[in-house]
Design a protein around this nucleic acid. Sequence first.
DNA 1: GTCTATACTGAGATAGAC
DNA 2: GTCTATCTCAGTATAGAC
Lengths: 183, 183
Amino acid sequence: MPRSGEDARRRLQDAALALFRERGYDHTTTAEIAAQAGVTERTFFRHFPDKREVLFESQEKLATALTQAIAEAPQDLSPMAVLQRAFQQVAPRFEANRSYSLPRQELIERTPILKERETSKLGALSQTLAVSLERRGIDGFRAQLAARSGMAIFALVLDAWFKDPSRSLADYFSRAFVELGRL
Amino acid sequence: MPRSGEDARRRLQDAALALFRERGYDHTTTAEIAAQAGVTERTFFRHFPDKREVLFESQEKLATALTQAIAEAPQDLSPMAVLQRAFQQVAPRFEANRSYSLPRQELIERTPILKERETSKLGALSQTLAVSLERRGIDGFRAQLAARSGMAIFALVLDAWFKDPSRSLADYFSRAFVELGRL
DNA sequence: GTCTATACTGAGATAGAC
DNA sequence: GTCTATCTCAGTATAGAC
C-alpha cells in the first residue's frame, strides 16, 4: 500500500464516489470510505475538511483555469465577451471527462446537502470571477453583475449539456450568451 | 408553558439569533438554544431539520410573495420586466425590517456554513422563479436564464443596500436592471 | 493516532387541545 | 376517543481537540 499522499487522496475520492452512488451519500460513512481506500478514517479528514469536500476538488482547478483565462484575454473585449471566451476555453475539460463528471453530477443533484455545497462553490467561483474582472479595470458593481450573470449561464449550460450532449458545450455557450443579450 | 407550536418556534428563532450573535454560530449548541427557549433539544429538531434552518424561515415567505407577484403581473411584460416588478413589490419587506435583517445578514456573512445555506436557498429561489416564469408561457431555457440573472441582481442589490442604505432598494433595483441591459 | 463534543435520529411515553 | 406538541432515553457519525 503506497504511502504517497496524492495516491491515497485519489483512492479516497474514487471510493467515495463509488460508495455514494451505490448506497447513497448519507448511508455511507467516512469510515467505510477510508476502509475501501485502505487508510484510516483520520486520514480522510486530513485530506478533506469534511465529508462533502471529497467530491469538489475539480471545482478548485476550474477556478484556477478560469482566472487565468480571464487575465489573459485581449484588453478590448467587453466583460461578457471575456467570460464567454473563458468559458469556451475550459469547456474541453468537461467534454473530456463526461464519464466521470456525469455520474458525479447525478449524485449531487439527488443529494440536497451536496447540491447545497455545489451551489455555494459556484457562488464563490462567481466572486473569484468578479475579482478577475475588476483587475481588468471594470468597476466593482458591473464586475459583480457580469460575474454573477456569467455564472448563471455557466451553471445552466452545463446542466443542459449533461441532459443532452448531442450539441457541443461551445454551441450551448454561444446560444446562451445571445439569449441573455435579448432579455 | 403554552403548547402552541408556533410560540415555541418563535422563541427558538429568537434565542438562536441572540445566542449566535453573542457567542458565534459554532460556539452555540442546539441544547443551549433549546434551553433558552424553554424546550428540550429534541424539540428544536422537530421544528427545524438542522441547526442552520432556524434562521431561514423568512426566505420561505419571500419565495411565496415573489411567486405571487410574478403570477399577477400584466401579460405583456418581458421576463426581466416581470422580475423587476416583483422585486420592487417585495422591497418594502426588507426596508421595514432592517433592524432584524441587517444583524441576521451580518451573522450569515461572517459564518461560512450559514453563507453556504443562504447561497443554496437563493439558488432554490431562482428555480422557483423560473417555474413561475414558465407558467407565463416563457420557454424553459429563457425562463431559467432570466430567473438566474434576476436572482444575481437581487442578491447583489440587497448586498449593496445592506452596506449603504442611503439609496432606496427601488433605486438600486432600477439601476441594476439597466446595468445588466448594457452588459 | 486517540478521545470527545455535539449535531442529529429513532422510538416510545406523556400531556394538553379538540 | 384522536391528534399533535413535547419529553425522555439511547444511540450514531462527523469533526475537532489533544
